[in-house]
């Protein structure tokens, strides 16, 4: 018997029937067909059309929807807003998570109690988190806004775009710090004790050791977390934007995902919304490939 050449992702010991696996794959593929591939193809088709929402009049317009997007100031603005938002959110999330992870690694007492509480925001719906933050920072009634103003700072996220951006970054980070935190705690635990001890013998203090030894070893984890934070910021913060700012003021927090929704559902500009969907989907696919190719094998997930 000829040994078949090894296929990636296939067990050496395997079955060789075709009917059963097809049956097993069927539910997954049907779901994907109806709720993923057909909608995606529709988006693709719609992106080349100028159409009445009721479907009364449809013109094929080639790439007009795309060229209109690239020429549109509000779309370019949305791209920049998304970049700033995801960057800001990334920095805040990683820095706070690193500090908390470092501290968790050093303490013995109450460690699991600390962990338990810090994990909580993950359980809370983004829209509820957004509403709580919007309320706290509301310049007219919010207790924290009151505190900021009593310190003499101007604070008005309804009018000032950077205040609004800061607010959504804080709300989005608050929800996501726990995620990075878990990976960093696990990563710190995996740093070989011998390395740390050797450095301690050489007279390096805990903070120095953290920066010189632990942080470089956490590199791949940090890279992985940055990717995941971008994915989070890009695609999963819709509810926070919707609850806190509605993309305003003057489009200052109108991230790409929110704009897809607004142009499609509120403005009924289906062609433009579909073109934006297509661009976002291509970008997401790119991120997936990137993550699959570079991130996956380099990170040690063991806890």
């Amino acid at each position: 018997m000829v040994v078949p050449p090894h296929e990636p992702g296939l067990k050496h010991a395997h079955f060789r029937t075709a009917g059963l696996p097809t049956l097993l794959l069927l539910p997954q593929l049907l779901i994907l067909l109806f709720f993923f591939f057909i909608p995606s193809l529709r988006a693709l088709a719609q992106a080349f059309l100028l159409a009445d929402p009721f479907g009364a009049t449809v013109h094929f317009v080639w790439f007009d929807n795309f060229t209109a997007l690239f020429a549109s100031e509000s779309y370019r603005n949305s791209v920049w807003v998304t970049i700033w938002f995801t960057l800001g959110q990334n920095v805040v999330t990683i820095v706070v998570a690193l500090i908390l992870a470092f501290a968790t690694d050093r303490v013995v007492r109450f460690q699991s109690a600390y962990k338990g509480v810090i994990l909580l925001p993950y359980a809370i719906a983004p829209v509820i988190a957004g509403v709580m933050w919007a309320f706290l920072f509301n310049p007219a009634v919010g207790p924290i806004a009151f505190f900021i103003k009593s310190l003499g700072f101007a604070w008005d996220p309804n009018r000032n775009g950077s205040d609004a951006m800061l607010l959504v970054i804080l709300a989005a980070s608050w929800k996501h710090i726990c995620y990075d935190y878990i990976f960093l705690v696990a990563g710190l635990l995996a740093v070989p004790k011998s390395l740390m001890e050797a450095a301690a013998v050489d007279g390096a203090g805990p903070v120095k050791r953290f920066f010189q030894i632990a942080l470089p070893l956490l590199g791949p984890t940090l890279f992985f977390l940055a990717t995941m934070n971008f994915v989070y910021g890009f695609f999963e913060t819709f509810a926070i934007i919707d609850a806190v700012t509605h993309g305003g003021p003057a489009g200052a927090t109108n991230i790409l995902v929110y704009k897809v929704f607004q142009d499609g559902f509120v403005n009924l500009d289906l062609g433009s919304s579909a073109a934006q969907s297509v661009l976002l989907m291509s970008f997401a696919l790119l991120l997936t490939l990137l993550q699959f190719k570079y991130v996956e094998r380099k990170v040690n997930y063991s806890i």
Binding site: G9, R16, L24, L29, A43, F235, V260, L285, T288
Partner: peptide
């Protein structure tokens, strides 16, 4: 299982990996 469309199925599933419903809403 080793069957003819195994890799095709794998890639079809793979494509949907990170695309949240929000994007194609």
């Amino acid at each position: 299982f080793r069957f003819r469309f195994r890799l095709l199925a794998f890639w079809l599933i793979f494509m949907s990996l990170m695309l949240p419903v929000e994007v194609r809403i």
